[in-house]
Design a protein around this nucleic acid. Structure first.
Lengths: 375, 375
DNA sequence: AAGATGCCCCAAAACGTTTGCGCGGGAACC
DNA sequence: GGTTCCCGCGCAAACGTTTTGGGGCATCTT
């Protein structure tokens, strides 16, 4: 409907569960072209094109003959040739720091899913935060004439986005980064998430709070921290600078940061806000090694709500991001942009949500095990 | 070197850290074409092509002029047009069940990495084991004229591979599946992995062993089980059918299977072999909920060695697959195939390895906590 | 019966590349 | 001084599509 009759007709050819694509191909080394179909059906390539795309009325009998030939040969039009004529390629690219981090993996999965639903496909590139690698990947994607690009990098580098904006040919959406003008950005509402964590801990009576922060240049982690600090201030509490420990948001760095914290603080904070679940799980590990009980001796709250948060010991109380939805939204907005549906380029901030499990106790003087606690 | 001077020249143009791709583009809506470059340099498109690809000697002075124009305009040749002339697209597709499962995520990451190193890019499709979805994704990738395809699906469906083999145009590599003739398959050596687990448990003195198996049609999990059972037999032990519980290899199903096991067995087995780490972690969770200590009351061994295995409580003893290497190998073999380097189409089985941590105790009558155990 | 009107269909151009062929001119050879 | 050779370069075809502009032919109108 509307302006895309082509994909409809394409869908028609795809119908049915049988594998058209495998039929009639046995003798050919190459995929069949529109010419082969035209020859087989005894019509011109023009007619084949119009039958396939439904772009002009064709006599029913001719149409039947052409469709038979298409099915017989297993013909699929080459997007390459189509795109040469100024059409889009139907492919979008994604630059992501890493696809193995569970949070990123889920965002990517959301992107892929929405792309599929809208008839697009996804070229995935892991940047590992290596600028040179990103440049090479970007160059390749430009050569492949992607219609748009989704960027999800952990370290905010303004100059990179500056360069990106110079590319007039391709549209851009960023995920999990600083707000940028002229670029659609999809995030969760990190200040709100930070505040959620702060308020929950304060209500439970915790006063001496630590933080496992992200890297200095990580825009979202910084905002979570900001929201956290501001909510504390509202509650009349101050965040102690000396109780903020940096991580790079991985399991290992959460472990390491917690070890540093426990080594440096004679008496550990009552509760710790971790910038993501991975660091929280790493921190749990370190705390256990040090002989601390969670939440008996120390409470811990995470961020993201990855699947593992429900299965670790103890189950992690955390701030849930609508992870999949962030990916889906980004894909949606990008494709709308590509298809020329003029949208506002305003940032989207999806609301996070607190998920209570077991890693936060009921207060600093409380213990889940009778006979223990009162630390 | 050898037969690919083009990519070399492409690399030359890409050199340097500055962002060529952003320069000179401000006034254009479209990316510049070879014609624009030719006009700017005052030469024919032929010459531009030869300069870019190094396919014919060009006078030094002309060459300099052309290169200047290329840099100035930020020109990148369209792979689309190039591929029309019978060249390859430099893109390979991957059908994977899900990219959020940590094991799959890491394999995919290996594929992506090796593709990048070899100058290819990766189109990722999550199939969710939905045959109809796979057909649609395959159709799209065929239209995009991918050079080859990597398939990593959990449920082995012979008819699908049958169809796939019908496609003469594109090359095929499968990961983590049954051996197939005419198709390169990359796996770990699952029988060996199963045997490794069995021998380790037997050496530790465990006799009554349970299994958290995979789905019935999962070829690798079945082989692990086979290797496990055979090694037990060698040791003079039999695997009790009633102690085999099926899972679908997810966290939740590991949890559920363990709950069933504990409900049905008056006295639980001494040790359990889980077909992957995810089910093992799920099982740990269920065991804890039931008040069982691991490894005090029950030993557990996993498979895969995902990152989380080192951070769960207790740390998981497991069989490590060379996960990343499986992905890299698959990409490598596929691209060799695409580039016509005739390789053997034999299956590859990379050897797994036992990683000892804390989830397996020192024997059925042993306990890690003094005063407990002797269960 | 002649002209007008639709209905079907085809030819050809265009998209951005690569590449075989060939052309002009200067240097080397006899 | 004429022939041969080589060097440096351009022309144009081809790849698989879409799309514009007609053209042939039957049917309807008068």
């Amino acid at each position: 409907m509307g302006s895309r009759p082509k994909s409809e007709a394409g869908g028609a050819v795809r119908r049915g569960p049988t594998a058209h694509y495998a039929k009639g191909m046995e003798a050919r080394a190459q995929l069949p072209t529109i010419k082969d179909v035209a020859r087989a059906a005894g019509v011109s390539v023009t007619t084949v094109s119009h039958v396939f795309n439904g772009t002009r009325p064709v006599a029913a009998e001719t149409q039947a003959r052409v469709k038979a030939a298409i099915d017989e040969l297993g013909y699929y039009p080459s997007i390459l040739a189509r795109a040469l004529k100024g059409e889009r390629t139907g492919t979008i690219g994604m630059l992501a720091t890493s696809s193995t981090n569970p949070f990123f993996a889920e965002v990517i999965s959301g992107v892929e899913e929405r792309c599929f639903e809208l008839g697009y496909s996804l070229i995935l590139c892991n940047t590992r935060e290596d600028r040179q690698r990103m440049n090479a990947q970007l160059a390749t994607m430009l050569q492949k004439r992607i219609d748009g690009l989704i960027v999800m990098t952990t370290n905010y580098d303004p100059s990179f986005f500056q360069d990106l904006r110079g590319l007039r040919g391709i549209h851009l959406v960023a995920i999990d980064t600083e707000d940028l003008d002229q670029v659609i950005v999809v995030n969760d509402d990190s200040e709100m998430g930070g505040a959620l964590a702060a308020n929950f801990l304060v209500e439970r009576g915790f006063r001496r709070l630590g933080v496992l922060a992200g890297p200095h240049q990580h825009p979202r982690a910084n905002r979570r921290l900001k929201g956290f600090a501001e909510a504390l201030k509202q509650a009349g509490l101050a965040l102690e600078e000396s109780l903020i420990y940096r991580t790079d948001l991985t399991l290992g760095s959460g472990d390491a940061a917690m070890q540093r914290l426990l080594a440096q603080q004679k008496v550990p904070p009552e509760a710790i806000f971790c910038m993501n679940d991975l660091t929280a799980i790493g921190a749990m590990h370190a705390a256990r090694q040090a002989g601390l009980e969670i939440p008996g001796d120390l409470s811990l709250i995470g961020y993201d709500d990855i699947e593992m948060a429900s299965y670790c010991q103890p189950q992690l109380t955390t701030i849930r991001q609508p992870t999949m939805e962030i990916g889906r939204t980004a894909a949606q907005r990008l494709i709308a942009l590509v298809q020329g549906e003029e949208e506002t380029s305003e940032a989207v901030a999806l609301p996070p949500q607190l998920v209570e499990r077991q890693s936060v106790g009921h207060g600093p003087a409380w213990s889940d095990k009778p006979g223990k606690g009162e630390a």
